[in-house]
């Protein structure tokens, strides 16, 4: 039985694809056979973030429409043998994702022995996003500590709780909150919502806090999931989040400002 983990947010640009790539790579690193699927038909980017953009021959929609087999479309990651990528189609329109078609592909992936199926949802609440949500067992809600992102996350939670397959069958999708682009200095100065504020408002269990980090852009520039960067705070924070997802208890790191020297504190440096 495969577990479907949907990474979603409502709002665009908050780090869904970066988080999908990191979580999928983290689960594979932990020894689980994992596949990550791009649901953003027409605007695919997961291939680029995973560094496999030149290896895409067939995609998700090709498989649904029967033009290719799943084995032909799956791209095996070259760094992690447990990890495969299924790219979205760049040309076809979103209506190509049917509930029946998506369901069949997910079933087939489970039969192939994948333990985790990570679904990278597109922004918005259109078909691609609702399809990614529909089959979720777990949902990772990616939120920036910023008003519009928090509001959209709440909207997505509403959809999860009413429209997902689990909800319709009287069950519940496991919800996890992942706060990204967190700046502890600005939080301390009262310029940014704190992780406690966001948790209070959304009432979802926090699975991780990813600090604002230069490593994220560097990782996407080079097509390497940031979780594989052991020197980066963001990579380590994703590692912690995946460990918590798998049931480990780990303290939050990188959530308080780094210690400043006396001199820069007096002069007000670091703001």
């Amino acid at each position: 039985m495969a577990t479907v983990v949907t990474v979603t947010s409502g709002k665009g640009g908050v780090g869904k694809t970066t988080s999908s790539a990191a979580i999928a790579a983290g689960l594979a690193q932990a020894g689980h056979r994992t596949v990550v699927i791009d649901f953003d038909v027409g605007l695919r980017n997961l291939d680029l973030i995973m560094g496999v953009e030149r290896r895409v021959v067939f995609d998700f929609v090709n498989v649904i429409s029967g033009e290719a087999t799943l084995n032909q479309a799956l791209i095996q990651d070259k760094r992690l043998e447990n990890l495969s990528i299924l790219a979205a189609s760049q040309t076809k329109d979103k209506d190509a994702l049917t509930e029946e078609g998506v369901g069949q592909v997910l079933d087939q992936l489970a039969e192939m022995g994948f333990e985790y199926i990570v679904c990278d949802s597109p922004a918005g609440i259109e078909r691609g996003a609702t399809m990614a949500l529909h089959f979720a067992d777990h949902a990772v809600i990616v939120t920036n500590p910023e008003v519009s992102s928090v509001r959209d996350s709440d909207r997505i939670l509403g959809i999860l709780q009413s429209k997902s397959k689990r909800a319709k069958e009287g069950g519940k999708v496991h919800e996890h909150l992942l706060i990204t682009r967190y700046d502890p200095v600005r939080v301390e100065n009262g310029e940014m919502l704190s992780k406690e504020d966001v948790c209070d408002i959304l009432a979802v269990k926090l699975i991780g806090v990813i600090p604002e980090s230069k490593a994220v852009l560097k990782a996407s520039n080079t097509g390497v999931p940031v979780i594989l960067d052991d020197d980066a705070d963001a990579g380590l924070a994703y590692g912690d989040a995946v460990a918590r997802f798998l049931g480990e208890d780990r303290p939050m790191r990188f959530v308080t400002p780094k210690k400043q020297g006396l001199f820069s504190r007096i002069l007000g440096g670091g703001d």
Partner: peptide, 29 residues
């Protein structure tokens, strides 16, 4: 924190304003 901050007087932080606005809006939605 900074020396200048000591003299600027206490204002309600913008994060607190954000939280209050969100709580009202989201409970309504």
């Amino acid at each position: 924190m900074a020396l200048f901050g000591l003299f600027s007087g206490k204002k309600k932080s913008s994060a607190a304003a954000a939280k209050e606005r969100l709580q009202i809006l989201i409970s309504h939605e």
